[in-house]
Design a protein around this nucleic acid. Sequence first.
DNA 1: CGGTAATAGTTGATTTTGTAACTAACAAGG
DNA 2: CCTTGTTAGTTACAAAATCAACTATTACCG
Lengths: 146, 146
Amino acid sequence: MTEKDDFTLQDFLPYLLNRAAEESSLEFQQHYKNRYGMLRNEWRVLFHLGNYGRMTATEIGQRAKIHKTKISRAVAKLAERRFVVRNRDEQDRRAEHLELTPQGEAAYRDLREQAAIYDCQLASRLSEGESEALRHMLRKLAGIDQ
Amino acid sequence: MTEKDDFTLQDFLPYLLNRAAEESSLEFQQHYKNRYGMLRNEWRVLFHLGNYGRMTATEIGQRAKIHKTKISRAVAKLAERRFVVRNRDEQDRRAEHLELTPQGEAAYRDLREQAAIYDCQLASRLSEGESEALRHMLRKLAGIDQ
DNA sequence: CGGTAATAGTTGATTTTGTAACTAACAAGG
DNA sequence: CCTTGTTAGTTACAAAATCAACTATTACCG
């Protein structure tokens, strides 16, 4: 009874998760936004391609849990700006394989570097060892198998 | 050197935070969306008013870090549906104090109950004691003073 | 006072997202 | 083959977020 009655907003996990996610997203977006004029979904697609290599839009969607319309638009923008090239699969002509151009690779490496730095900054707000525990918990909550 | 070279997307805190936040938001929105036809910002404003009591739009914005245009539109909807009443401050006639109607109170109590239940469900995906550590870390990352 | 700046909140224009419907290509069963 | 169903990706339209400009009121300061 008391357990539910003293439940407050400040303790609500989805609220805290959203606040922390929004805070960090907003801080980090300056890198891909200011330096490359990218939107969040474009950055995510770029990062996935850089991280996992050549794959199709559907595969990105499954891994990143991004809806296919978002990916379609992000890929269109990235292709237009020559960060990504599309290659139609000759076996299955519906699908197309995406991969980074050298220019896309360069942007990816630069942004990954920034991401690593920012990640360290964030982790430094936590105590020793906490950040690994946090990543582990977030993966569980996000339903990422690992 | 190796530290930055083996940095991957799956470990990037903003990415994990966003995935976990999105997952939990989507799951929880069914409650305020299906039962009360509310949007996320409306739910947030309602929850803030229920939790902290009478306050102005600006105060909600500062606490919740929601932009004033979002609050303005959320309050308009909540007032229209008689969940909230607006009272102009007679000392400072620019400001208006917002508070829940009895109907708003009822919705708040119902949703807070659902939130408490959902929060337990989420926490149950973690090990004993982890969830309190998680809340603590998220507050630090979100910049919530406490 | 009178003018300029600041604040509370709203509105409108533009951009981005979400949802559904769509095209094109393949697959499987008769 | 041909119908039906499924999958990859795009497009169209509605909903929502963002950003700037706006009104109304108060505060500051010469």
